[in-house]
Amino acid sequence: MAIVADHLGLSWTELARELNFSVDEINQIRVENPNSLISQSFMLLKKWVTRDGKNATTDALTSVLTKINRIDIVTLLE
């Protein structure tokens, strides 16, 4: 997760939308982690794993990252 969080940057909100997080949930992550995109990205991934449990797999994440054109991160995960 740390590799993904380190590289997402501003794309974390796009990833959040693709992972079916609501606008309110995205804003809450922003408010709770106001000074760091990496912290926002990491919190998103943590919430995703908590919410989706065993369905929050590397394959699922890779699929969504591909959908938002972040092949650079997919390559890092391989």
Rank of each mutant, 00 (worst) to 15 (best):
M1R: 08
M1V: 10
M1G: 05
M1F: 09
A2L: 10
A2W: 15
A2I: 11
I3N: 06
I3D: 05
I3A: 08
I3L: 13
I3S: 06
V4S: 03
V4I: 09
A5E: 01
A5T: 03
A5Y: 03
D6H: 12
D6P: 08
D6V: 07
D6F: 04
D6E: 15
D6L: 07
H7R: 12
H7L: 07
L8A: 00
L8E: 00
L8Q: 03
L8N: 03
L8S: 01
L8F: 06
L8T: 01
G9H: 04
G9F: 01
G9D: 05
G9E: 08
G9Q: 06
G9C: 03
G9A: 05
L10G: 12
L10D: 13
L10V: 14
L10S: 15
L10I: 11
S11R: 00
S11P: 00
S11A: 07
S11K: 03
S11Y: 05
S11C: 07
S11G: 08
W12P: 06
W12F: 06
W12S: 00
W12Q: 05
T13Q: 09
T13M: 12
T13P: 15
T13S: 11
T13V: 12
T13N: 07
E14W: 06
E14V: 13
E14D: 12
L15Q: 03
L15S: 03
L15V: 12
A16W: 02
A16N: 02
A16S: 01
A16G: 08
A16K: 01
A16L: 00
A16F: 04
R17D: 09
R17P: 01
R17V: 10
E18Y: 04
E18G: 06
L19N: 02
L19D: 00
L19P: 02
N20G: 11
N20H: 13
N20M: 11
N20P: 00
N20I: 04
N20V: 04
N20K: 09
F21L: 03
F21C: 00
F21I: 04
F21W: 00
F21Q: 04
F21N: 05
S22F: 04
V23K: 10
V23H: 14
V23P: 13
V23W: 12
D24S: 09
D24Y: 08
D24C: 07
E25L: 02
E25K: 02
E25Q: 08
E25H: 02
E25F: 03
E25Y: 02
E25M: 03
E25S: 03
I26T: 03
I26G: 00
I26P: 01
I26S: 02
I26W: 01
I26V: 11
I26R: 05
N27H: 12
N27T: 09
N27Y: 10
N27G: 02
Q28R: 12
Q28H: 09
Q28T: 08
Q28M: 09
Q28S: 11
Q28N: 09
Q28L: 08
Q28P: 04
Q28F: 06
Q28K: 10
Q28A: 14
I29L: 06
I29P: 02
I29C: 03
R30W: 06
R30T: 10
R30K: 13
R30Y: 12
R30F: 04
R30C: 11
V31R: 14
V31F: 11
V31M: 09
E32K: 06
E32G: 09
E32P: 05
E32Q: 11
N33G: 04
N33R: 10
N33P: 02
N33I: 08
N33H: 13
P34A: 08
P34D: 08
P34Q: 12
N35R: 10
N35G: 12
N35E: 11
N35A: 08
N35V: 06
N35F: 05
N35Y: 07
S36I: 02
S36N: 12
S36L: 00
S36C: 09
S36H: 07
L37R: 05
L37F: 08
L37C: 10
L37V: 14
L37G: 06
I38V: 14
I38Q: 10
I38C: 12
I38Y: 09
I38H: 09
I38F: 09
I38T: 10
S39E: 11
S39R: 13
Q40H: 04
Q40F: 03
Q40G: 03
Q40M: 10
S41P: 00
S41R: 03
S41M: 02
S41L: 00
S41Y: 04
F42P: 02
F42I: 13
M43G: 14
M43R: 10
M43Q: 13
M43K: 09
M43C: 15
L44T: 05
L44R: 02
L44K: 07
L44C: 10
L44D: 04
L44G: 01
L45K: 00
L45D: 00
L45C: 06
L45V: 04
K46D: 14
K46Q: 15
K46C: 06
K46S: 13
K47R: 12
K47Q: 09
K47L: 11
K47C: 07
K47V: 05
K47T: 10
K47S: 12
K47W: 10
W48I: 02
W48C: 01
W48L: 03
V49I: 12
T50N: 09
T50M: 14
R51H: 02
R51G: 05
R51Q: 00
R51D: 04
R51K: 05
R51T: 00
D52A: 08
D52S: 05
D52M: 03
G53V: 04
G53T: 05
G53Q: 12
G53A: 06
K54E: 10
K54A: 13
K54D: 08
K54I: 15
K54Y: 10
K54S: 14
N55G: 14
N55E: 11
N55M: 12
N55Q: 14
N55K: 13
N55P: 04
A56Q: 07
A56M: 05
A56K: 09
A56H: 07
A56P: 07
A56S: 05
T57V: 10
T57H: 09
T57Y: 10
T57C: 14
T57S: 10
T57E: 02
T58A: 12
T58Y: 14
T58S: 15
T58Q: 14
T58C: 10
T58I: 15
T58R: 12
D59G: 13
D59P: 12
D59S: 10
A60N: 15
A60L: 12
A60P: 00
L61R: 06
L61K: 03
L61F: 02
L61Y: 00
L61I: 07
T62P: 11
T62V: 12
T62N: 06
T62I: 06
S63G: 13
S63P: 10
S63K: 13
S63R: 13
V64P: 14
V64W: 04
V64Q: 15
L65E: 02
L65P: 04
L65S: 01
L65Q: 00
L65G: 02
T66V: 14
T66E: 09
T66G: 10
T66R: 12
K67E: 05
K67A: 10
K67S: 08
K67C: 06
K67Q: 12
I68C: 06
I68K: 04
I68H: 01
I68D: 02
I68N: 10
N69H: 07
N69S: 08
N69T: 02
N69K: 11
N69E: 13
R70A: 01
R70G: 00
R70S: 03
R70D: 03
D72P: 06
D72Q: 03
I73Q: 00
I73M: 05
I73W: 02
I73S: 02
V74E: 01
V74L: 06
V74N: 03
V74P: 02
T75R: 13
T75C: 11
T75E: 15
T75F: 08
T75H: 08
T75W: 09
L76F: 08
L76R: 14
L76C: 12
L76V: 14
L76N: 08
L76E: 09
L76T: 09
L76D: 07
L76A: 15
L77G: 04
L77P: 03
L77V: 10
L77Q: 02
E78K: 13
E78L: 07
E78T: 12
